[in-house]
């Protein structure tokens, strides 16, 4: 399942997508520790699988919460994307 966390408003689309089919294979969950703001958590989803998710309190302000990792120029690789071994995490912006 591709779980899209985020929103779309007048300023654009801001979604972090977690492919839970890839995520359930991972035991390391590097994304949780890699995010400097602690946006990620491991939850038991509706199908009883342990998967990563974006914490509720961050879902409506991703544009701002992720901004420190997304400088306008010389953007380094995103820590959450880099730490995700199965490649389950993607950003829409």
């Amino acid at each position: 399942m591709k779980a899209n966390y985020g929103y779309l408003d007048g300023s654009g689309e801001f979604f972090i997508t977690i492919d839970t089919d890839l995520c359930i294979e991972c035991t390391d969950h590097g994304c949780v520790d890699a995010c400097p703001l602690g946006l990620f958590e491991i939850i038991v989803d509706d199908y009883d699988d342990d998967v990563a998710a974006i914490k509720e309190e961050h879902r409506k302000k991703l544009k701002y919460d992720c901004a420190p990792c997304k400088p306008v120029s010389d953007r380094p690789p995103l820590p959450c994307v880099e730490a995700c071994a199965p490649g389950a995490v993607t950003h829409s912006w």
Binding site: M1, N4, L8, D9, D46, K60
Partner: peptide, 18 residues
């Protein structure tokens, strides 16, 4: 919501900001 033939979610997107 995108789902398979068993009604299991395969892709989802929610907009509840406004």
């Amino acid at each position: 919501i995108h789902c398979d033939e068993r009604g299991k979610v395969t892709n989802l997107l929610m907009n509840d900001k406004c």
